[in-house]
């Protein structure tokens, strides 16, 4: 049976610690380059701070982790890619990026309504010796290609290998958990199979408090958000991605 892996992120639980960002980068051998900036860095998941626009005691803020939404329908990046370097995996629903096919034209970055894709401007580099700390299950990130979240696909492979070794057809769901989900100290990010109606994540995605960013575009993202706050839910249909606010301290 094919799965539709997705997430429900409870924004009322996110404390903006950034553990998911660091854990994701460590898992996927993303380098920390000195020349990288907010615009040019490689951050498959990035946590933005947004507010209700009020000041003083009426001000409210929330944190929104943004990553590839793994759009199911008319996936914008798939439609524009001239190299067929992006495809929606039929078995998992994961929007897969194949860096070996990518020629770096960046049409997909322009097409993505969520600004969830990043161009890799530089060869990966680490201080001398630090390459020994890289995850052996993942290749280093290639220069000149577009990158994005692939829901820690290598972990799915490992889970499948484990299931195969145990002569099982299906993986144990606890064996496939993306790094950001594992790292979240408040369990704000829930991961599961949206195609399984009994999966807790599928149930949660049907909650009245659940919403998707720019749902009106009809791309059927598989990343859902959840909040009790109406002003947070209203943000979902704003035309631009949540604008980062520079915060110090």
């Amino acid at each position: 049976m094919s799965a539709r892996y997705g997430m429900v992120i409870d924004l009322d639980r996110c404390i903006g610690c950034g553990s998911c960002m660091v854990a994701c980068a460590a898992e996927n051998n993303v380098p920390a380059l000195q020349q990288a900036t907010v615009r040019t860095g490689l951050t498959p998941i990035v946590v933005r701070t947004v507010s209700n626009g009020q000041e003083g005691a009426a001000r409210r803020e929330t944190f929104i982790p943004i990553m590839c939404m793994h759009c199911e329908h008319d996936t914008p990046c798939v439609k524009v890619c001239p190299q067929q370097a992006v495809e929606v995996d039929r078995a998992t629903g994961i929007v897969m990026q194949m860096p070996q096919r990518c020629l770096g034209c960046r049409y997909c970055m322009t097409a993505c309504p969520y600004h969830a894709r990043y161009f890799n401007w530089w060869d990966p580099a680490w201080p001398a010796g630090m390459e020994k700390s890289l995850n052996p299950g993942i290749a280093v990130r290639m220069r000149g290609v577009v990158e994005k979240c692939n829901l820690c696909h290598a972990r799915l492979h490992t889970a499948k290998e484990k299931a195969a070794a145990a002569a099982k057809r299906e993986i144990d769901p606890t064996d496939y958990v993306p790094a950001c989900v594992e790292a979240c100290p408040t369990s704000a990010i829930h991961f599961g199979n949206l195609a399984d109606a009994n999966d807790p994540v599928a149930k949660e995605s049907r909650s009245p408090e659940a919403f998707r960013l720019l749902a009106r575009l009809g791309t059927e993202p598989k990343v859902y958000y959840k909040s009790k706050e109406a002003w947070v839910r209203d943000l979902a249909e704003t035309n631009s991605a949540p604008r980062p606010e520079v915060k110090h301290g």
Binding site: G18, V22, G41, V46, V47, R48, P244, K247, H248, G249
Partner: peptide, 10 residues
């Protein structure tokens, strides 16, 4: 990633 490649922290 927290303070150069995002605006999460100063």
């Amino acid at each position: 990633k927290l303070y150069i490649e995002s605006n999460l922290r100063g």
